[in-house]
């Protein structure tokens, strides 16, 4: 077996297609994607509800009417659902012991982990953006000609926020993969994602100003708005970070999570 040419080595494409089949052949992937897609329905219901409120107002009330955009309001739900998908992509293998079977097939651990991360990133990028776009489109159709605030601008003006939101979903999925790998526990991984999304930003808000806002601005939930050039919070005026810096910080979460995952995955016994 010695002296096998390098072209005979396991191809990254083989590992990628194996990981893709792994991901799509289990129900949990369909369930988490389905849960994520529920925001299309939630967004439609929300827009319909806000629309009936708008219909009941007089012209002055209608002019002053401001409703939150559903693709923005329900974004944390999407981030959480696909964050769980990221966690399960690795912890389901540890929970079942499948990880040892996988590692016997692909002993190059870095390659196996990066293939898993790559497939997860591709699926969540496509799925996250599709779900956000559908939510956006359905809510605009239901809103129709009503001036509800969120549907004031043209699509091109909303595009940066949509793209940033979609990217954040993938970042949270990769954070889930990383924390799931480090903790080897579904509960540990899901809790880590929830803490990053919901708990720590709230704690940051308790810090004395200006630190409260400065720290809050660094969390994924605040970065999406800053990437789109929107104020980090309603009362804060301009965003704390320039869009490109905010984008770099958001991508940084994914890079750190994947790097930590690779370290943990390659250095410990399976």
């Amino acid at each position: 077996m010695n002296g096998v040419p390098s072209s005979e080595r396991l191809k990254i494409n083989s590992v990628l297609s194996s990981e893709w089949l792994k991901l799509r052949s289990v129900r949990s992937t369909h369930h988490t994607l389905g849960a994520a897609a529920a925001i299309v329905v939630l967004g439609a219901v929300w827009t319909y509800y806000a629309g009936t409120a708008w219909d009941g107002r007089d012209p002055a009330g209608r002019a002053a009417f401001r409703a939150a955009a559903p693709e923005e309001g329900f974004l944390p739900f999407l981030q959480m659902a696909l964050g769980v998908l990221g966690v399960l992509a690795i912890t389901s293998e540890y929970a079942t012991g499948m990880i040892r079977t996988s590692l016997v097939a692909v002993p190059d651990r870095r390659r196996l982990f990066l293939a898993k991360a790559g497939v997860l990133a591709a699926l969540t990028l496509a799925g996250g953006h599709a779900i956000l776009l559908a939510t956006y489109a359905v809510s605009r159709i239901i809103a129709g000609g009503r001036t509800m605030g969120f549907n004031a601008g043209p699509f091109t003006a909303d595009l940066p926020a949509l793209l940033a939101s979609g990217l954040s979903v993938t970042v949270l999925a990769l954070v889930g993969l990383g924390t799931g790998t480090i903790t080897r526990s579904t509960a540990g991984g899901v809790a880590s994602v929830a803490v990053l999304l919901f708990v720590l930003p709230g704690v940051a808000n308790l810090l004395p100003e200006p630190w409260g806002l400065r720290v809050f601005a660094l969390f994924p939930i605040a970065l999406v708005r800053q990437i789109a050039g929107e104020p980090v919070a309603a009362q804060a005026g301009a965003g704390a970070l320039p869009p490109l810096v905010a984008l770099a910080v958001l991508v940084g979460y994914a890079v750190v999570a994947v790097a930590a995952g690779v370290l943990s995955f390659t250095r410990r016994d399976a």
Partner: peptide, 21 residues
């Protein structure tokens, strides 16, 4: 027991076959 119970036997083996080329 080191298999994902939510996968069919065919898919399980296909995942491994793909990985091994």
């Amino acid at each position: 027991g080191a298999v994902h119970g939510g996968r069919s036997a065919f898919d399980h083996l296909s995942c491994l076959a793909l990985a091994g080329g």
